[in-house]
Design a protein around this nucleic acid. Structure first.
Length: 986
DNA sequence: GCAAGGTC
């Protein structure tokens, strides 16, 4: 116990790493308050905690952590998975002894997949993969690990997550939690936070246990789902299509697409093309050499180089006429070479590749291993600033043991101010820069080389810059200027431990007034890189994707080039990292709790779906881009082309909110309307046999919700409809059209209904069972947010079908030339229930009584636009039908004009609020104008809401259809029938 | 047969 308390007091003295949330402010003097170091309210019944299950991300880490926590005195036993052992030992936690079971997973325990049948490549059009349901499942090779957890957690009262402290680690943590909670729902859960597997760090993690962060895990869920949907949809689409188009080259080739791999390919192609398109150009320069005994000093020309040979030759000859150089100046100034910045992951990969010739992948593999064995800190970090509370002294001291760089480490400790790191500008606020955590002299091979590099880099970074003195000599020959510089290193400092940087002394004697030897014109060539060499291009001709040249440079293959060019030609920046970068930025916001998981997911799904649909439409561009490499493109037969077409949404499914699309029946030529959520959602419309053809129309129903509900072009069998009805027309199946509703038996609109009559899916008739509730199924995290179901239509549907403008002479067309909308007067008054036509868009003011088509005369209805300004909005929904609503969308009050004048005693509707808050709505109670009814259903054609509604024309009265001439209106409320002097608003 | 990210 004493040891424990002492340790705690040491830990409290300011060596907390970043990323470790310090929950107890009194930790600094907390010898007397061990309990407070844990958040008191986080643990229930701590006295009852006897057995604790700890789970690390991999076996190595579990072993390393156990070794530290048990001082090497753990018992090891087998779990169900032979790669993941169980380490058992006693530990002192929350002021009591507990038994710890430490085991591990092997990375992600669960994977994400489409539900059946969508895993099958030919199960659906790839675009549907943006909506298809997904679920988490435990892959075959993880089942044993899962069983171990399920078995062991049953005897435990607390679960501590010891996965790596990064995003993926947090998500893996939640996978472990989900599995454990499924068998033991009341298990308590804590999270250990650490950046190194070293005694200090592990003990600190035990003392600062916190709650797992679901926000960070959420960000990974979003990434996973997007990667799956994007990867699968694009891969299937381009593989299936290109295999058909280039059967000879690609018949058996999988052409994968991923949101990370494709921008990478794009980068390789871009670099390659830049190098290829580089045109080498010959240049010329004058070179001056000065020979002093054995040494030769080269002077560089101030003009650097000329691309014109004659010009250079002229200058050269002038110089040659009097080749005596005059020294014009000799300057000397101190110069320093900076020590390296603290090491982050990318820098480590770059330097390891450049200096050690170890690939990035190999570097990370080794670093990972060094980390789990406690030699270095967590190697995945974006930070290049050492946090001020990280004690560098002990880390440097550790290295003094080395026979190779120990003396240098000692020098660092003795230098004034001790270790003094250069500070970068990046911090991920989670992990410190990569640094050695303990000394080793036994590491071999690349492991040893990388470890040495990390140590040397660390020591260099905390030591001092190299210092030197630079001397610059300027000379003049026939007015042409040349110069050279020399360097004297005065203090090597960090260079002594860091052989990866070169900075060498360059000496020359300073002599003035001597004759310099002027030599020849040198001819040179501005060069590209070696990759231009023809033989490399030759070698990759046979390759299909990205290859590696003999000098380790990337070369894109023909397929890779074609794909990048093809997608580029579509105008999307798909081969650039932008799309992915945008996603990464949003993921960061999700992990910080600043953006909502579902909205980010939906936004990006929608964005990529749009790109996908466009790509399919422009797929020919892919063929064109590939055919220079792969030969002529094969034509795809028309019926197969139709299969590839993307079904565009007709409307949202009234039951689950996903898209409903027209699909071809498996048998016969007909189509049916189905929810893309099938089989989870079985909403569908099977058109009766009398419907010969059905297709999507561009027009959108103005009344049906949720918008947009696309109209359908329908063609009926002769004799199947009443004689006055046309056989072809554009109609709405959203519910507003009662006739169509009856004719097509649109049962799907009824809540709980599923599918229509007749037909039956190719894969068996589906039962008329009610569809499942919105999105969530067995998946704990549903793939779609709840979507509002269709609201009841705000008005009774018109009696007749809307008639297509082109189909026959019965068409009623408004002044915009569009088919007019048939509506019914609903206001109390003599015209209640009467039908009339109005402009569909609400813009031209067209009006016509349905029962008196001839009365108003063609000249008015079909001729010049009627001067009817926007009427007031009245009833907005069925709940308050018949009531007049003001602009605040509240029931208007009815008042009587009190003032003397022509309207005295007349009733009017106005906003019921106080004078200051009034919205300005006004309407005469005795004016039951049809146009106002025409804008029922919240259809506020003007778009700018209330203000216009004050403009009521006197012509639009109940028994008089609107006149073409605008009547005089009041200057205050713009209402006709009275003047400014008699305005009730005054 | 698809992704990307863990891990072996």
């Amino acid at each position: 116990m004493l040891v424990h308390l002492l340790r705690r007091s040491v830990l409290g003295s300011g060596i907390l790493g970043i990323g470790v949330k310090r929950r107890c402010s009194c930790a600094l003097q907390s010898v007397g308050c061990p309990d407070k170091a844990q958040p008191a309210d986080m643990i229930r019944n701590r006295a009852q905690i006897k057995r604790v299950l700890c789970v690390a991300e991999k076996n190595d880490a579990a072993k390393g952590i156990s070794d530290i926590m048990s001082n090497g005195r753990f018992r090891r036993r087998e779990g169900m998975s032979k790669f993941n052992k169980i380490y058992e030992y006693e530990y002192h936690l929350f002021g009591q002894n507990v038994t710890v079971l430490m085991t591990s997973v092997s990375g992600h325990l669960l994977g994400l997949e489409f539900k059946t049948p969508f895993q099958k490549w030919h199960s659906c059009s790839p675009v549907l993969l943006f909506d298809a349901e997904v679920e988490k499942y435990c892959p075959e090779n993880m089942v044993q690990i899962k069983r171990t957890l399920e078995k062991e957690v049953k005897q435990c009262q607390l679960l501590i997550i010891w996965t790596d402290c990064d995003r993926e680690g947090e998500n893996i943590g939640f996978e472990i939690i989900d599995v454990c909670k499924a068998v033991k729902p009341n298990i308590q859960v804590l999270r250990a936070k650490f950046s190194e597997i070293t005694p200090n760090s592990i003990r600190r993690a035990c003392d600062t246990l916190s709650e797992p962060d679901s926000k960070v895990s959420d960000a990974v869920d979003v990434r996973q789902e997007l990667d799956l949907r994007i990867g699968a949809s694009f891969t299937r689409f381009q593989t299936l299509r290109l295999q058909k188009i280039f059967p000879e080259s690609l018949a058996n080739q999988l052409i994968s697409y991923g949101s990370c791999q494709f921008p990478t390919l794009g980068f390789v192609v871009e670099r390659f093309k830049a190098i290829q398109s580089f045109i080498p150009e010959t240049f010329y320069k004058i070179k001056v050499l000065h020979e002093v005994e054995e040494d030769t000093v080269e002077f560089s020309w101030k003009r650097n180089r000329l691309f014109n040979h004659t010009a250079c030759l002229v200058l050269y000859q002038i110089c040659m006429e009097d080749p005596i150089a005059t020294v014009t100046s000799v300057t000397s100034k101190p110069k320093s070479k900076w020590r390296p910045l603290p090491l982050d992951t990318v820098e480590m990969e770059k330097l390891a590749s450049r200096k050690l010739r170890i690939s990035a992948k190999e570097t990370m593999k080794i670093a990972e291993k060094l980390y789990t064995r406690g030699f270095i800190s967590y190697p995945r970090t974006e930070t290049n600033i050492f946090p001020p509370n990280l004690a560098l002294g002990p880390l440097v001291e550790e290295q003094t043991q080395s026979s190779v760089w120990g003396a240098f480490a000692q020098r660092v400790l003795e230098q004034p101010g001790g270790p003094n790191p250069r500070q970068g500008k990046k911090s991920d606020q989670a992990h410190p820069p990569i640094h050695p955590t303990k000394h080793s002299s036994s590491l071999q091979g690349n492991e040893g080389r990388l470890y040495e590099f990390i140590v040397r880099h660390f020591l260099a970074c905390v030591s001092q810059d190299a210092l030197g003195q630079e001397t610059v000599v300027d000379v003049d020959i026939a007015q042409e200027k040349f110069s050279t510089s020399g360097l004297m290193i005065t203090a090597r400092n960090y260079l002594d431990v860091y052989p990866y940087d070169r900075w060498t002394t360059k000496v020359f004697s300073r002599t003035t007034g001597v004759k310099y030897k002027l030599i020849d014109i040198e001819r040179g060539c501005v060069t590209g890189t070696d990759a231009t060499h023809a033989e490399h291009i030759e070698t990759i001709k046979s390759r299909m994707y990205v290859g590696l040249t003999s000098d380790q440079r990337f070369l894109p293959g023909e397929l890779g080039m074609g794909l990048v060019e093809g997608y580029n030609s579509m105008g999307y920046e798909m081969s650039k990292p932008n799309l992915r970068a945008e996603l990464e930025a949003d993921l960061k916001l999700v992990s910080e709790g600043r953006k909502d998981k579902w909205s980010v997911l939906q936004h990006h799904i929608q964005k990529y779906k749009t790109v996908f649909i466009e790509s399919v439409h422009k797929a020919k561009k892919l063929d064109e881009a590939l055919s220079p490499y792969l030969g002529a493109a094969q034509e795809i037969p028309e019926e197969q082309q139709q299969d590839m077409e993307i079904p565009l949404p007709i409307r949202k499914c009234p039951h689950c909110g996903r898209d409903m699309v027209l699909k071809k029946k498996r048998e016969g030529n007909g189509k049916y309307l189905t929810c893309v959520g099938y089989p989870a959602c079985k909403t569908a419309v099977w058109f009766p046999d009398m419907v010969l053809e059905v297709s999507r129309d561009q027009s959108i129903c103005p009344t049906c919700r949720p918008a947009p509900v696309h109209m359908l072009k329908l063609k009926f069998r002769r004799g199947s409809l009443p004689p006055m009805m046309p056989l072809e027309f554009v109609g709405c199946i959203g519910g507003c059209d009662e006739t169509l509703r009856e004719v097509l038996d649109l049962k799907y609109l009824r809540a709980g209904g599923s599918g229509g009559s007749g037909g039956g899916r190719g894969d068996g008739p589906h039962p008329p069972a009610p569809p499942p509730p919105t999105a969530p199924s067995s998946n704990a995290r549903p793939s779609l947010p709840p979507v509002p179901t269709v609201v009841p239509q705000p008005q009774p549907p018109p009696r007749a079908l809307s008639v297509s403008a082109s189909s026959d002479s019965n068409t009623i067309v408004c002044n915009c030339g569009q088919q007019a909308l048939l509506l019914t007067v609903r206001k109390d008054g003599p015209n209640q229930g009467r039908q009339f036509y109005k402009c569909n868009g609400g813009t031209c003011g067209f009006f016509l009584w349905a029962d008196q088509p001839g009365q108003q005369g063609a000249s008015q209805s079909w001729g010049a636009p009627l001067q009817v300004s926007q009427p007031p909005r009245t009833t907005v929904n069925s709940a308050n039908a018949g009531q007049t609503m003001c602009h605040c969308n509240e029931t208007a009050v009815t008042r009587t004009v009190q003032k003397d004048g022509p309207n005295k005693g007349r009733m009017f509707h106005t906003c019921g609020k106080s004078r200051e808050q009034q919205c300005g709505f006004f309407q005469w109670a005795d004016e039951n104008t049809p146009p106002s009814g025409a804008f029922d259903g919240g259809y506020n054609g003007g778009g700018n809401g209330g203000r216009q509604a004050r403009r009521i024309t006197g012509a639009a009265t109940a028994d008089k259809p609107p006149a073409a001439k605008r009547p005089r209106t009041c200057g205050i409320c713009h209402t006709p029938g009275h003047t400014r002097a008699t305005c009730p608003q005054r």
